[in-house]
């Protein structure tokens, strides 16, 4: 049984006098206990809105969320806000791109970690602070005893992200949602943080939803990958499957267009034409059709459905990239 089961999740933003924006459009995916699942896609495809909807963190007004978010059989979308708050932090941890905005600037770090432990695990202040010290140590923050009394702005971006990871993992949640946790960091710091995350989730058996635009990050980390385009999942596959044989023309095009450090430099990069502003609405066919090299008549007219492939994979395409026939 999956730990997290997101079914047909949609989020529509609607403000008076503006056209509704369908930011997330019927997204379904599951996360098994201990599994690492990737959500990849480019800016604006609905990654962050999906994660905020799962956590119940979207603004109260101006949007409509439909579908189900089952965590351990409980539909989080049906919980009252105060009950949901108990789940957050205790059963589900989260990390965002910008650690500074998720840390409280006027509370010392130690206390911020300790408060989570006090609230969810009923620790005394003293015990919680001691545990906070150990947590800061575990995420690789130098000299943790002294860091307890310091404030977020006294730390570098990488160290702040470590502090946030310490808070997110303080209660040993069963699920961690990380939204672009390394995008604002330099590549050498990114490598530190990704290695740390991998070790921590491996050790604790925490399931991880990794949200990123970087296919390289996914390649090293995720068991299963969901590729999002314009608010919908267009392809889902096991990591090795997805990278070895991408079937969706968008996934295929993306993988071909990024220069790789480990292969000889080609002359020109493969490029995907146009931009997301050329998309057509999903109700009129495949949103990617105006940019797609493989577009055929069947792609236009009505929504292309997401069809299961094998081993839990799925594909939303009428004319997918052919599979290589083994010789």
């Amino acid at each position: 049984m999956p730990l997290l089961d997101v079914r047909d999740l949609s989020v529509v933003f609607q403000r008076k006098g503006t056209r509704p924006v369908r930011a997330v459009d019927g997204v379904s995916f599951t996360v098994e206990p201990g599994q690492t699942v990737g959500l990849v896609g480019e800016s604006g495809c609905g990654k962050s809105v999906t994660s905020l909807a799962i956590m119940g963190l979207l603004p109260r007004r101006g949007n409509k969320v439909t579908g189900e978010v089952r965590f351990d059989e409980t539909d989080l979308l049906k919980l009252r806000p105060q009950d949901l708050r108990d789940w957050r932090g205790r059963d589900i941890g989260m990390i965002f791109q910008d650690p500074l905005s998720s840390l409280n600037p006027v509370i010392p770090l130690g206390l911020q970690v300790a408060e989570v432990l006090e609230r969810h695990q009923g620790r005394t202040r003293k015990a919680a602070l001691k545990q906070a010290r150990d947590l800061l140590d575990a995420v690789g923050i130098p000299d943790p005893d002294r860091r307890l009394d310091e404030f977020p702005h006294q730390l570098s971006g990488g160290m702040r992200q470590r502090a946030l990871i310490a808070i997110a993992l303080a209660c040993k949640p069963r699920l961690l949602i990380a939204d672009e946790p390394t995008t604002a960091l330099d590549v050498t710091i990114q490598a530190q943080i990704l290695t740390l995350l991998k070790e921590l989730v491996d050790d604790s058996g925490t399931a991880l939803v990794m949200i990123t635009h970087d296919l390289g990050v996914v390649a090293g980390l995720c068991d299963t990958v969901n590729v999002l385009y314009a608010g919908k999942v267009v392809e889902r596959a096991y990591r090795h499957q997805l990278f070895a044989e991408p079937r969706h023309p968008y996934t295929h095009g993306l993988l071909q267009s990024v220069p790789r450090l480990d292969v000889d430099r080609g002359e020109r990069l493969h490029q995907i034409r146009g931009s997301v502003s050329d998309n057509i609405p999903w109700s009129e066919g495949c949103a990617f059709a105006p940019r797609c090299d493989r577009v055929i008549d069947d792609c236009i007219g009505e929504t292309v459905p997401l069809e299961p492939t094998f081993r839990g994979g799925a594909l939303r395409c009428t004319n997918p990239v052919p599979q290589e026939v083994p010789a």
């Binding site: 570098s156 990488g158 990704l194 290695t195 390649a219 990591r239 090795h240």
Partner: peptide
Amino acid sequence: AVPIPDPLVEDRRERILLAGD
């Protein structure tokens, strides 16, 4: 440190992780 979009490569890579900032 640069991630490579290929699981076969990523699984076998040895990284030189730099300490600190």
